[in-house]
Amino acid sequence: MLEHGAHAAGNVGEQVKNMILHHIINGWEIEVPSSHWGSSVELDSHLWHFQLAGIDVNMSISKHVIMMFVAAGLLLLMALLLRRKIALVPRGFLSMIEGFVLFIRDEIAVATMGKHHAPSYTPFLCTTFFFILTCNLLGLIPYGSTATGNISVTAGLAFVAFVAIQFAGMRQMGVFGYFRHLVPPGVPWWLAPVMIVVEILGIFAKPFALCVRLFANMTAGHVVILSLIGLIFVMGLAISPVTVGFGVFMYILEIFVAFLQAYIFTMLTSLFIGLLVAGEH
């Protein structure tokens, strides 16, 4: 009897684990609310399979790619709709968006690179912020999934930030000046080789820090919420008031984290650009 119970619990645990993984990991099927297509739509298509250097590459559109398309579409729609309503004194939704944009310009761009350089990088920072924010929030609605909870997506975003940072540095100092800057002025000659290695390490550590932070934060919260829900199946229905209460609390925390991580990603990108364009000369 006891053995049987333990065995059953093990099975439930296995199922809960699979349920959590299913919701976190990228896949080639997407759940849909309509029963017309069944509960999920298969996205994997043999048309997008091809061989590259002996490795089978699957370029089918996946769940997270769909979510990024949705995010991009939403932002495009928002921009097109709000563009028509631009007024001297914005109202409603527009004033909220303007609040965000002003915050990014004044508190992020100006604070890290100064008034002179901030305007040329604010559009890029706004794009980064709103795209990450939309992706984060799309993971919190039913049938959604978090594209930013995928290390490949965050690595892609970090690569964009990496290119932007290097581009900003080269624009400010010139390509030659940028490479000369790898040895900061005033460093004794015997320290120069070490400084070059240290600086190059830093160049690659910056996007790495951006990438891992966003991925870990977005994934961790979802794992906690799903585990709390899964606890109901493991420990019985009696525990549900507690877990659902904690789950709702975590969900509200997740909304906060969605904003915070978008802010932090933007802030750090801006800071790294600021280090190059407004650093010591």
């Binding site: 604070a111 890290t112 390490l201 830093g202 690659f204 550590a205 910056k206 790495f208 820090a209 891992v212 932070r213 802010y263 932090i264 802030m267 750090l268 800071l271």
Partner: peptide, 17 residues
């Protein structure tokens, strides 16, 4: 806020090194 996030820079350098 800007100071809260720079610890990750330390971590990033360590991991890459």
């Amino acid at each position: 806020a800007p100071y809260l996030n720079i610890g990750s820079m330390f971590l990033g350098c360590m991991v890459v090194g």
